[in-house]
Write a protein that binds this DNA or RNA. Structure first.
Lengths: 333, 333
DNA sequence: ATGAAAGCGCTAACAA
DNA sequence: TTGTTAGCGCTTTCAT
């Protein structure tokens, strides 16, 4: 009882045509007489023939598969992007190979090489920072790459983001205009250019616009985890800050609950604005004011851009910036 | 500037050996003289040769990739499973092709056929109910299949779950022992056997153990969404229930906040026990008492089981039941 | 409109 | 230990 696969030969024989003809009807080539097409289609149906995508990939050098490198699928931020990616991929008849990297530089390289070995037609990369090593791999391979929610230092590959700097500036501004003079900046690693460059710059700009001094004691780095937020509560209180701009929702609700548990009233005594507007912001009480970024769309647009690149279409602009916003809820006055 | 791929031939030529030898060293075949191996490895390194997995797949009839059918990656419940799957897959050198089905019967079939066309070595399926159609496809194909977090009506394929019935019974029991006589059962579609058979049965058992009558007016069906939970608050209040067993965290926090917003005190006036123990349960105040199921492990064990099946190892038991528990937090007395 | 035949890059007997 | 040689199932010229 071995796997008796039906091949294009079987179909050709049964339909009394050559395999080339079968290939043509399978691929929708118009150079087939309707009658022939019909006959072949019947046989395909009767035999339950299913073209072998691997053989196809070898012969055509196209796998209709794209690799997606993601730090962690179980993180709602990334899985939202992933969902956008997959939906558009499906729309364009691509499949995605999903690979978790844990944000580890080594794994990223490993995984990328693995994906390239599998002959993916393109790669979508999500990660906090683009190391030199990975950039080297990108440029060495001719496979199109798009960064989703990551900044490319020199635009060698495609990328889709929002204007993080402007968003950070607006968020900080809101806090400053509400009268806060000591505003904390709470982010992940400042080595990540989105945090250390873009957002921090926006934060400083807003401070300076509001004639506030920049104070390193108000800048906190933490991992994007609920517990980390809770643990931060004490330190943030001691810093004298009366408001915080936070770049991650999980961190933000951790801090919110940590503060609440210590009897701090939000927003009366402490204002909070977070960044990703995931479901989490609506779950805590008070609900959190948040920067909004179109996560699903960042994924979807990335994939769309990638399809164009894989298709060798002219892409007017491969560095795409999507609009952001701010939604005010109960954590700000 | 076309993609000039280096093939096994190039390596063979440069190393003055046959391609078979190169193939052997690449595949770790021991029948190669150390000196030869070393020479070949050097050339591979120098030429930056990377074996073409597609060609390999065609020749060996193994792709070292498995298909993963998931209702929605951006749902934390499923993405937790997916993470477990991918970690074990990586461990065993497999890649995963991730495909969202939205739980739609048609898409599931489509996606499955697509994955089979890509010659995946195995399939992991997550879904709420297994239709006859999809079961037909499963049995028609010789590709091993494992259900992760889904019940197989007649154990034709592998599956990994917890004992939903026992868990529901224990949860309901807890509520009954706390003195509640009107306990709501809030689930997704009762057509899903996990809800309509397993859990509902467990719920009824607990009622009967506690000499409580079963009342259809206390059974609610809703989509697993936060909003749905909020919307349900009114109806649940009107039903006279003073406690609820809920099968989904998002739904549960929606209901919790909906009740809270209407001035109901939890747990004093209403007790809640939910099911998946995701981060969400720790985010709301009060934190929610929850059934615990090892989501990551269900994914991980599913993949492990699948590797065995793909490897044609003898599998003593392909219907695996993992342990569950209950963690008591602030939403029960 | 259709067929013949040469690969795609690799694995896996089978020989040597 | 190493090489030779068929394929794997399909796409894609090039003829006809």
């Amino acid at each position: 009882m071995e796997k008796q696969t039906i091949t294009i030969y079987d179909v050709a024989r049964e339909a009394n045509v050559s395999m080339a003809t079968v290939s043509r009807v399978v691929n929708g080539n118009p150079n087939v007489k309707p009658a022939t097409r019909k006959k072949v289609l019947e046989v395909i149906d009767r035999l339950d023939y299913r073209p072998n995508a691997v053989a196809r990939g070898l012969a055509s050098k196209k796998t209709t598969t794209v690799g997606v490198i993601i730090p962690d699928v179980s993180n709602i931020f990334f899985s939202s992007l992933a969902r956008g990616i997959d939906d558009v991929a499906t729309m364009y008849k691509y499949n995605i190979i999903l690979a978790n990297s844990d944000g580890s530089d080594d794994k990223e390289i490993n995984v990328l090489n693995n994906l390239l070995a599998k002959q993916v037609d393109g790669v979508i990369f999500m990660g906090h920072h683009i190391t030199e090593a990975i950039r080297g791999e990108f440029s060495r391979s001719k496979t199109p790459v798009v960064l989703a929610g990551s900044i490319d230092p020199d635009n060698q590959v495609g990328s889709v983001n929002i204007d993080y700097q402007a968003a950070a500036k607006e968020a900080t501004n809101l806090l400053a205009e509400n009268g806060n003079t000591k505003i904390a900046f709470i982010s992940g690693s400042l080595l990540d250019p989105i945090n250390g460059k873009e957002r921090l710059t926006g934060y400083k700009e807003a401070l300076s616009t509001n004639k506030l001094d920049y104070n390193e004691g108000l800048v906190f780095e933490a991992e994007y985890q609920y517990k980390m937020g809770e643990n931060l509560a004490e330190r943030v209180m001691n810093s004298g800050a009366t408001a915080a701009y936070i770049v991650d929702d999980e961190l933000a609700i951790g801090l919110t609950n940590g503060l609440l548990d210590r009897g701090i009233k939000i927003p009366e005594e402490f204002e909070i604005i977070t960044t990703n507007n995931t479901l989490l912001t609506e779950v805590v009480r008070p609900k959190l004011t948040s920067v909004t970024q179109p996560l699903y769309d960042i994924g979807a647009v990335s994939m769309r851009l990638l399809t164009k690149m894989m298709n060798k279409e002219d892409v007017e602009e491969k560095t795409i910036v999507l609009p952001h916003g701010i939604v005010e809820r109960g954590s700000t006055k």
